[in-house]
Design a protein around this nucleic acid. Structure first.
Lengths: 299, 299
DNA sequence: TAGTCGCCATACATTTTCGTATGACCATCA
DNA sequence: TGATGGTCATACGAAAATGTATGGCGACTA
């Protein structure tokens, strides 16, 4: 491998990304702390070097061409890697310090992780945790995050993966709702109730629907793809919905419906890139998450 | 996301990588086409910016610190992404042109792909294919390659994956060997023969050994982890080894031993990053590989 | 319709970065 | 032990990149 193979300054890619994000040369210049003509020159240089027109200029701003949009993901990968490198460098000194970027789903991140992270913060005050909550699986290989809590087993060899256990799910409803509408005694009864469900059909939803045909889009009284909103709806007594047993168990007003028939359970995996194996901060965070999640799953 | 969050010039990462690769400032300067003091300045600047010592200087060269080695993978990711961006830009014009980087195992790359690529080259003379042959799974997410031919199903949602079929494997030996040592009529007979096998125990070997206990490390007369060498050994009449049926079938002097008992078969997958879906060159290459491999698997 | 505010492009001065030349040091070998 | 070829560090002039100031243009508003 020869490093020089691409003799395009990497600096150009960064300003390219800035312009793409801000939509104008001046905007990018402001956000990056450089002068507007410099940004313009960088874009020109990149266009010349690549032989591709990246933006259609107008006096109201710059419109990215298709080519620019096609190239954006690559520049974003560079950005992620640069950010990850910087994080890794921070924690390079002695002792536990620096920033670790953790990604998880919204439910896990809002309901489960806070106490775990609080304890971690307590033990290691110099450690900063960046929590990225999204249902889109962030890419550890692309360095979008250092550690991921995910519901699927990763198959990448470059990833260190540990299964923390299985999170049981169950139908739940608020006492108030059940007092008013009665408690279903069988799965068939569910059809008579206000069900809280999903809008778009994700792989998980498909699996759930297969196991419980009642769990169908048409039977839902409220549909939302936001998991936290589903929990909030259950808590508000809107109807019957699926949520994690452990989360529901905290609220004494929530009742587990049809306890025997657990619809599905979520295998939970903790994942980290193997490059970070020797990074003390990441290791500490990984171990804390592992223990905390295990305690959560099997108290 | 704020681009400026890392106000370290990306240029510095590139020279850092160059120094890491060459092991000296002067070497990196030569390979990158810049002057040695410039390289030195970049390293100094990066060390100051990161607050980390990257190299221990000596007059015989530079020795990377642990920190530098820990940060290298991130810089390599940036490098891969930059190279991929450049490839993507090349093929951005009209018509099929530019460079597509394909990765595959050595066996596939040497025995199966050449005719497919020759035909592709014929139809699209302006298309260049970079063929990276390695048994290490190159990372499509990390942009080390555009298209991968692999024996495992990828589980990443960001990847477009198509199964091209199953490549049957079988025990094979050269006629010359069989004339001399006889043809085994049962699996048990294999123990009396010179078996060509693996040295290190990979997941695949483990699976094979489970199905065929004879296929054990201790029974091997020749051990090599190089698949192509195994085929060459079979061809040279060294003994009995496992190789793809289709490859063996080309050589009339190779005999399939115990034809009924196919030890294992390899599911073959063609994979591409979804970002490249609209890249005409990658699409054409992907389709050509798909068709070519399918034809190869089921003629 | 006149005014304001945003944008990009250009010209010129400035700063920064880079390259050349050189010196000091170490390893190797005759 | 002296010569050679490699390394990195430093000093200074050259080149390149940047920043400032300005002009022109379009969109929006009163």
């Amino acid at each position: 491998m020869t490093i020089n193979n691409t003799d395009i300054g990497w600096e150009l890619y960064r300003t390219f990304l800035g312009v793409l994000e801000e939509g104008s040369l001046s905007g990018a210049a402001r956000s990056m702390g450089i002068a507007q003509p410099t940004v313009g020159r960088h874009v020109d240089a990149l266009e010349t070097a690549l032989g591709v027109t990246l933006f259609t200029r107008s006096q109201t701003g710059l419109l990215p061409t298709e080519a620019a949009l096609a190239l954006q993901p690559f520049a974003l990968t560079m950005y992620s890697a640069a950010a990850a490198l910087k994080r890794a460098a921070e924690s390079q000194g002695s002792g536990i310090q620096g920033t670790v970027r953790v990604t998880a789903s919204e439910v896990i991140g809002q309901e489960v992780l806070p106490p775990i992270l609080a304890k971690l913060q307590d033990t290691h005050p110099d450690l900063t945790v960046e929590l990225v909550l999204t249902n889109r699986v962030q890419d550890l290989l692309q360095r979008e995050a250092d550690i991921a809590v995910r519901m699927t087993q990763p198959r990448q060899e470059q990833l260190i993966a540990r299964c923390v256990g299985v999170m049981p799910l169950g139908f739940h409803a608020h006492k108030r709702y059940l007092d008013k509408h009665g408690t279903p005694s069988s799965l068939a009864d569910l059809a008579q109730h206000a069900l809280i469900g999903f809008d778009e059909e994700t792989p998980f939803v498909r699996a759930a629907r297969k196991a419980f045909p009642i769990w169908n889009r048409e039977n839902f009284a409220v549909r939302t793809d936001n998991d936290m909103a589903q929990i909030a709806l259950i808590r508000a007594g809107c109807g019957i919905g699926v949520c994690q047993m452990h989360i529901a168990a905290r609220d004494l007003n929530l009742v587990n419906i049809l306890p025997g028939s657990i619809p599905l359970s979520l295998e939970t995996w903790l994942t980290m890139h193997e490059d970070l194996r020797n990074n003390p901060s990441c290791k500490v965070t990984f171990d804390a998450l592992l223990k905390g999640l295990q305690d959560y799953v099997t108290p």
